[in-house]
């Protein structure tokens, strides 16, 4: 199974690489102009285009690119002029830390809120949590981020306003990231719990006199976890590259921002490297969430 997954991973990465390669070339824009800057004359732009091999036919560029990644060489960044891998590798730890912490906060609070809402269905608490999560996902991320920053960094001076370095730097961005994600986890948990609570085995357990908490946490939640894990796995993968607004607001050196900036700069090699890394991370996180699902629900193992 692991081997098959590994094969699938290679296919996914290849698919994404080629798609990204083509997409970047399909999008209008001129990397040579971006390197040269708006003030440079056309002959300078032309010289740069030749120098980077951007005047070569597409299939030759693609061939070079694929040959490069086959040997683990992502090329040289157009913007920083250093090996892409050097630029990308420093982004991995911050990206991972931010996603894991944001996800962790959202899972902890989201599952708790979801279970609460499900067991108190129809009460004020349920409605209140529903409104809270709706606001969480609807209010613009950068607004939430800046407000937190104004209060905790500028007013109270508890944490630095932005940047990367100490664990204090992580607090605000992780929280900001978690807010939006909290909504989908808590909603999913609530809905999933409601389903499960009606299932026969839960009723049976209750009827047999198993304590309520035990029923909830053991029987019900365990079975309700399936879609939550799926969503969490998927969102985690997406957070790695999709936390761009949070990263931008807090000047967090993440992969998502690097990718977006590189797309804007038409820094083809960096974009390609970012997307490949993301594809790998996403495939790994879906794999892990599938494994978790198998663990939680043995019925799946038969497949």
């Amino acid at each position: 199974m692991l081997l098959r997954r590994l094969g699938a991973l290679v296919v996914t990465v290849l698919l994404v690489s080629v798609a990204t390669f083509l997409a970047m070339r399909l999008v209008p824009g001129d990397p040579a102009r971006m390197i040269a800057g708006p003030e440079a004359s056309a002959d300078v732009v032309e010289a740069i285009r030749r120098d980077w091999g951007l005047d070569q036919p597409l299939h030759i560029q693609l061939g070079r690119f694929l040959a490069g990644i086959a040997t683990g060489d992502f090329g040289t960044s157009y913007r920083t002029r250093s090996p892409v891998w050097d630029d990308v590798k420093t982004r991995l730890l911050p990206t991972f830390l931010l996603s894991v912490t944001g996800l962790g906060l959202a899972l902890a609070f989201g599952i708790a809120a979801g279970v609460l809402a499900a067991t108190r269905r129809g009460t004020v608490l349920d409605t209140g949590l529903s409104i809270l999560s709706t606001l969480g996902i609807s209010l613009p991320v950068f607004w939430v981020g800046i407000l937190l920053m104004m209060f905790f960094a500028a007013r109270l001076r508890w944490v630095p306003s932005s940047g990367w370095g100490t664990w204090q730097h992580l607090v605000l961005p992780a929280f900001t990231l978690g807010v939006g994600f909290f909504a989908s986890i808590s909603r999913m948990t609530r809905s999933s719990m409601l389903e499960v609570l009606q299932d026969d085995y839960v009723r049976t357990a209750r009827a047999k006199g198993v304590p309520r908490v035990k029923v909830l946490m053991g029987h019900a939640l365990r079975n309700a976890l399936l879609p939550i894990i799926t969503i969490a796995g998927l969102e985690f993968g997406r957070l790695l590259g999709g936390a761009v607004i949070t990263e931008t607001v807090f000047a967090w050196p993440g992969l998502g921002t690097l990718m977006v900036n590189s797309i804007k700069f038409r820094d083809y090699p960096t974009v390609q490297a970012c997307v490949i890394l993301l594809a790998i991370c996403i495939a790994v996180s879906t794999f892990l969430s599938d494994l978790l699902n198998l663990y939680v629900d043995p019925r799946l193992r038969r497949g």
Partner: peptide, 8 residues
């Protein structure tokens, strides 16, 4: 997760 975030 808490430990991880604390160790950063």
């Amino acid at each position: 997760l808490l430990v991880l975030s604390g160790c950063a």
